[in-house]
């Protein structure tokens, strides 16, 4: 985990450097959001291999089938997500993904996850 976090922080630095909009505060939220994503979500939404016979992890495969390649199957590569969408799915769940309680993901953590997953969204960046 630690190794994953360090690696995560390293690529975030390079992303952060290119993104003119990100104030220091947002950058911190994005960084924290990335770590939280690795911890809570990447087991289903990350890259990597699924069950025998399934080339992708659960969430990645589901989104690949749902959007048939029109949107990236990897959540972290999406450009259309907003913090509100992320919050909606995390608190309401969808399909077999159960909602997360506030003891698992606090509202502050959720905001950071939202900042991370919407960091590539041009509309959100303008705000």
């Amino acid at each position: 985990m630690k190794k994953m976090l360090l690696l995560g922080a390293a690529c975030l630095l390079s992303i952060g450097a290119g993104a003119a909009h990100s104030s220091k505060r947002t950058a911190n939220a994005v960084e924290r959001g990335h770590a939280l994503f690795e911890y809570h979500c990447a087991s289903c939404h990350g890259p990597g291999i699924g069950n025998p016979g399934h080339p992708w992890r659960t969430g990645t495969e589901a989104l690949q089938v749902k959007y048939r390649g029109e949107l990236p199957a990897l959540l972290a590569e999406r450009k259309d997500l907003t913090p509100e969408t992320v919050a909606y799915f995390v608190r309401n769940g969808v399909s077999i993904m159960a909602p997360y309680r506030k003891t698992e993901i606090s509202d502050a953590d959720l905001a950071a996850l939202g900042a991370y997953l919407s960091r590539n969204n041009p509309d959100f960046a303008k705000k």
């Binding site: 289903c44 069950n51 659960t58 399909s95 159960a98």
Partner: peptide, 28 residues
Amino acid sequence: HKVLVGVPNMNVFTLSARNRTNPEPADG
């Protein structure tokens, strides 16, 4: 089979989530 060597993962859900052979899965 990661669980056979004690590696925690979430891959079992690929069986019940949306996938190529199961495009409209149950919620649970």
